[in-house]
Design a protein around this nucleic acid. Structure first.
Lengths: 391, 391
DNA sequence: AAACGCCGTGCAAGCGGTTGCGTAACAATT
DNA sequence: AATTGTTACGCAACCGCTTGCACGGCGTTT
């Protein structure tokens, strides 16, 4: 049952293996009556073609690889989920490669871990070296990227610099002038580009407003809660405190929030805080942030990859840009007054009547990049009527 | 370069393909001098064997599948990370199957999505139906499980009932008598067992203490923040409020925390709250919870699977039990007094001197299950000296 | 009625490895 | 010197599926 061969199906249907092959793959050239017989025979025997043999014969593996530097961070999990769904729907298999350290990276690119193993590769927020790019090209399969861009490869990404700029601009608009920044570790080889570009945006915003940048206002940490906490503590040890902080990602913002509260600083009364990504927890913390639809980005680029794998012809590489959006919640306020930019109405909790009106902060959604809609239908058991947030 | 064949290597080394094959796989019977020549030739040509051909010839795929019902929840990501690491180190490939809905589940089990595709299967917290079990057996490859148990399959899991019991016992010890419970959706087909068993533990603890269980004290929600929030709102609408709440997982506890605070109830002064899992955020929220080392469970069962795949002989199925531990933090307190069970010292924040002493709550670690050590070395960029928590 | 095209099917040669078996070549035993 | 044993390697038959090509049968053209 588990190891039925095509020959057995052929015998049972009274035809040759080639007919079975053609018929089952629907390549035509087989009469409907024969097809029917074959289908029945296959059905009865519980036949399914051996992937290995199929691969060997066709040269196609029916598999794509997704390569990412992190796994536990929200952004990556989200992306992975979206990609997996699209890939699976396309009938392909997904091979996961975690290149968390340089050794794995070596194995993945330099030596050919991927060679002859996949029909396509999806790279997530990896800034590649020249040799790595060469190795990927040598694979001779379509390569797609997310959060980065390399000539010849299709890609999708947000405008990190512009979005970071918008985040800082928001703080400036609220009257802040001493704006700190918590960035990823600059020595972190993996996430190089994103961190760098968001920092660019920070500086650009300062410059545009005529504000002076300063080493004093920047601190680094890992892209994590702990990292954000530590970086904030660093900032708090500097000569003069910032009145607002821009964290390069929401996880770091959570850490910052904790650090600030620990020392008794109120947010946003004493310090405004803005994050980046719109992590699901951001809503929980009422964190003002830059929102991006990670799921959708994953979906789009995965579809791109599926298309390229299906038709290895000269599909031109596309370079997509995903929108971002400033979502104002409760952690940013006008300098000095501690007043929130808009006065959000808190739902009256406690009442049983309030059950379905949940106290979600009505946020002010200013589009950094218009035409943005958040659509996700991925979870099977999704909570209905929960998207009343911002539009 | 990318598609060198074994024949070419053989020619270049002046030997037959069989010698190349044997030599490269180190099966012996090849002289050292010849081996050297072959190695050089292979090296120069950048040869790597075609997985497809190898699979077809040997019948082994060098691939294992991991099947899980969720992806975005912490527990599953953690597990996935651990498993991936072990599998990769063993030189195998990991195929990920997300069976979030019944359709995918069908495809995965009933029709043979896995057939001839993998050498082993790892099932995560899936409670299987009889036909599904039969289908898995028909695969004729080693199957391992985590969070569930089926005769003949190796497995690892915590004692959900006992651990839940310990959680509730903790609340009882603090003087609570009206103890609510937030459980997963009982109609949720995927997570059936875990939810059920934790609930058993809850009831067992109540019974042991002579407390009466009541429908009034239970509420359901999805295994998520939102679900916990909603369930808590339900509880708050009941006739009499519980003085303490046991949430079946930390995510739900977070939601509960939000809901409680929203209506002005103080935690733990007014209501004590305990979770389950020890999600990284639990520390952040000072959530008292039951801790389990998910990473280690993943590692252990993955190693088990690797062993079974390597030696398909009669490796006896093992049924491992992982320990859990009550971690008392700040969300549980003695009934009425609002006093925490032990008086944790908060680090003096604000001082720069406090930087490295971070204000981690010194928790009281009571072992539910002794001999438990938390060891993780997975992240490349791990924060040093951060494990000062409980022992 | 012969010639021609088309359709449906089978034959057999791959695809790129692995492996049982056979056989030189040489060493060790008698 | 003949026999036996050991070692190093090649031959060829798979593994299970795909696919170019040949071929027989049948309906159209001239």
């Amino acid at each position: 049952m588990a190891k039925t061969t095509i020959k057995e199906v052929a015998d049972r249907a009274g035809v040759s293996p080639s007919s079975v092959s053609r018929s089952l793959r629907g390549v035509g050239g087989i009469s409907t009556s024969t097809t029917k017989r074959i289908r029945e025979a296959a059905e009865q025997l519980g036949y399914s073609a051996s992937p290995a043999a199929h691969r060997l014969a066709t040269g196609r593996t029916g598999t794509v690889a997704i390569v990412m530097p992190y796994l536990t961070r929200w952004f990556f999990v989200e992306l992975f989920g979206a990609v997996e769904q699209v890939i699976r729907e396309a009938g392909l298999d997904l091979l996961f490669y975690h290149v968390g350290n340089t050794e794995m990276r070596q194995r993945c690119f330099a030596s050919g871990l991927l060679r002859k193993r996949v029909d396509g590769v999806l790279l997530v927020t990896l800034s590649l070296t020249e040799p790595e790019i060469a190795a990927l090209r040598a694979l001779d399969v379509p390569v797609c990227m997310i959060g980065a861009q390399v000539g010849g490869f299709s890609s999708i990404r947000i405008d990190d610099a512009e979005s970071a700029c918008a985040a800082v601009q928001h703080l400036i608009n609220l009257g802040h002038e001493r704006i700190g920044m918590i960035s990823g570790d600059p020595n972190e080889p993996q996430h190089f580009t994103v961190a760098l570009r968001r920092r660019e945006g920070y500086h650009a915003a300062l410059k545009a407003a005529g504000l002076r940048a300063s080493r004093e206002l920047e601190a680094h940490g890992a892209f994590s809660i702990e990292g954000g906490d530590e970086a904030t503590v660093q900032l708090l040890g500097r000569r003069s405190l910032p009145t607002a902080i821009f964290a390069e990602c929401d996880e770091m913002a959570f850490g910052a929030l904790r650090a600030l509260r620990r020392v008794g600083l109120r947010v946003p009364a004493d310090v405004s805080l803005i994050g980046f990504d719109d992590h699901p927890m951001a809503q929980y913390f009422e964190l003002t942030t830059i929102s991006q639809d990670v799921w959708d980005q994953g979906r789009q680029i995965a579809q791109q990859l599926v298309g390229a794998v299906a038709r290895p012809g000269v599909a031109p590489a596309v370079e997509l840009r995903a929108p971002t959006r400033l979502v104002v919640r409760g952690t940013t306020a006008v300098l000095g007054t501690g007043q929130r930019p808009s006065s959000p109405q808190r739902a009256a909790g406690g009442h049983v009547a309030g059950v379905n009106r949940r106290s979600v902060l009505r946020s002010v959604g200013q589009s950094v990049n218009p035409g943005y809609t958040k659509r996700r239908e991925r979870e099977t058991h999704k909570n209905e009527a929960n998207t009343q947030e911002e539009r």
